[in-house]
């Protein structure tokens, strides 16, 4: 757990809204989808990225996967041989080699599997493309992978439509495992699944993690799932990281008002709690990443905002064992979820 696997430093992904054009002189507005985000992932840990739609968590995952180039910043990755590479500056064969160790699981098991390919071709594709296995060897490897994710090896020649949603997600997981990855980026990997299947899939992921010593970057919005699976949690709001802490610390004593508001909004499956709970009603809506508010982007909705919040952008700084980007992080007494449970008794 001591060695860093991935270090993200001041990562930005900005999208210009339309080109400058021939006659237009005005500055082009920019969507700051990911704005100066820094964090580390240690080998063998599960770090979750949480936040609401538009907070940039998916963009961040895609930037690490180099689905699009970063605007600026560094992504230092320590390879299996110990060498350190910047994922943002690699290309060609070097990028391909690094990405052999970093694989992705997607949210939508229907959209991410080619309906015209059999399971053998889907799961075996990374092996074939990299000329690692062919023919009978490839089939044997795919059958092994299917068994690992709890699917029958006989299903090799079936097509995605013959599987249920949960099974398709397992196919996606098998494909991600095909190249013996070290880091898995799971983007909302269980969000589309039913409760009973979600539990199976979460158990599978934690089994695979301990069997293969995997490191997870788990992108999710469901805080109960995040609490269950993560070692540490990073909370994002409008492209920026607002809090990063160990799971237990974050859920018992959040340091950022947005984290507190998020937690108080999660519906908890216990009817006794609804009367006891104090819910923070957030005013207004999530700010736009095109024209985000001055100072702290959360200030228009924050119940604790003061003058300084309107004026100065808070930096992420050490607070109570974790990191928080709030001017009042030290003085605020924010409630976590354990507070909610105590309130019921």
């Amino acid at each position: 757990m001591t060695e860093m696997l991935l270090e993200i430093r001041d990562l930005c992904k900005h999208y210009p809204l339309g080109g400058p054009g021939l006659l237009r002189r005005r500055a082009v507005p920019v969507v700051r989808a990911v704005d100066r985000v820094s964090f580390d992932i240690a080998e063998g840990e599960t770090l979750s990225l949480v936040g609401e739609s538009g907070c940039g968590k998916t963009t961040l995952g895609k930037t690490i996967m180099r689905a699009h180039p970063a605007t600026s910043g560094e992504m230092r990755y320590r390879r299996a041989d110990g060498s350190i590479v910047d994922l943002g500056r690699l290309d060609g064969a070097a990028l391909k080699a690094a990405h052999r160790e970093i694989r992705m699981i997607f949210q939508d098991p229907n959209g991410s599997l080619n309906p015209r390919l059999s399971v053998r071709d889907i799961v075996g594709e990374p092996l074939r493309v990299r000329r690692i296995a062919q023919g009978a060897a490839l089939e044997k490897r795919v059958a092994e992978l299917l068994e690992k994710v709890g699917l029958r090896p006989e299903y090799l020649h079936r097509y995605p439509h013959a599987f249920s949603g949960g099974e398709r997600q397992r196919i996606g997981i098998a494909r991600a495992l095909a190249l013996d990855p070290r880091l898995v980026v799971a983007d909302e990997a269980v969000s589309a699944l039913d409760v009973s299947i979600q539990a199976q899939t979460l158990n599978l992921l934690s089994d695979l993690k301990s069997e293969f010593g995997l490191t997870f970057l788990f992108i999710a919005h469901d805080l109960s799932v995040v609490r269950h699976i993560s070692d540490r949690v990073a909370v994002m709001y409008v492209g920026r990281m607002v809090e990063l802490a160990k799971t237990e610390a974050l859920f018992t004593r959040p340091r950022h008002p947005y984290t507190e508001a998020l937690m108080s909004s999660v519906p908890i499956p216990d009817p006794r709690l609804r009367r006891a709970r104090k819910r923070i009603r957030l005013a207004g809506e999530v700010a736009s990443p095109i024209n985000s508010p001055s100072g702290c982007a959360f200030h228009p909705r924050c119940p604790y905002a003061t003058e300084i919040c309107v004026r100065d952008v808070p930096q992420l700084r050490p607070t109570g064992g974790g990191l928080a980007a709030c001017h009042h992080a030290e003085t605020l007494e924010l409630a976590g979820v354990s507070h909610i449970a105590e309130g019921a008794e």
Binding site: I197, A199, Q200, V337, S338
Partner: peptide, 25 residues
């Protein structure tokens, strides 16, 4: 009963296995 047990709890500590319902609909 099984549905309720399969839910990850926001109060629980990490690391435990979930009581998944075997098989599928």
């Amino acid at each position: 009963e099984a549905l309720l047990r399969a839910l990850p709890s926001i109060h629980a500590k990490t690391g435990e296995r979930l009581a998944a319902i075997p098989g599928m609909v």
